[in-house]
Amino acid sequence: MTAARRLPLLAALSLSALLAACATTPPPKPLSQGRGAWSFAPANRSESAKLAYGIPNSDDVGLMLLCAQPRVKIWMSQPAAAPPKKIALRSGKAHGVYPLAPEGEALLQATMPAADPVLDAFAASGELIADQTRLDARAANERAAIRAFRGACPAKTR
């Protein structure tokens, strides 16, 4: 009998009583990492290079950087409780505060210079704090994605 076919039987046994009675039953093993990740999208015909932090297959991108030389556009999800008036980014000792664009949409928007030291520090370390939230890259492929974005959107254009 497959696990799926056993479900109604298990339900009949009262899952509540069963699970509550087991002192050592571990919580379920998650399908996903349970955290966001950085991903890079190279420039294409309709859009320039993009770097986004978010949980895959979910709504609410935490932060997105879009190359718009000589600047970089920043999109950040809007906290429900107290939307900030600026976007603050910090990577190591480099930090910047960027005023929100007047055109409000679903996400908070601001821009930063492509030559901003925060971007260099972020590319070097993979560490970033957006307002008070740590969005550090933890996996090698995330750090590679960040470096790829910096490569596609450098501080100085030729």
């Binding site: 919580p27 349970g34 979910s58």
Partner: peptide, 22 residues
């Protein structure tokens, strides 16, 4: 425990729940 953060297909989600219950 987190079952899933973000979309996952039904068979995968039910497998996690079944494993938990079993």
């Amino acid at each position: 425990g987190v079952v899933t953060r973000g979309f996952a297909p039904g068979d995968q989600v039910l497998a996690v729940l079944n494993q938990w219950i079993e």
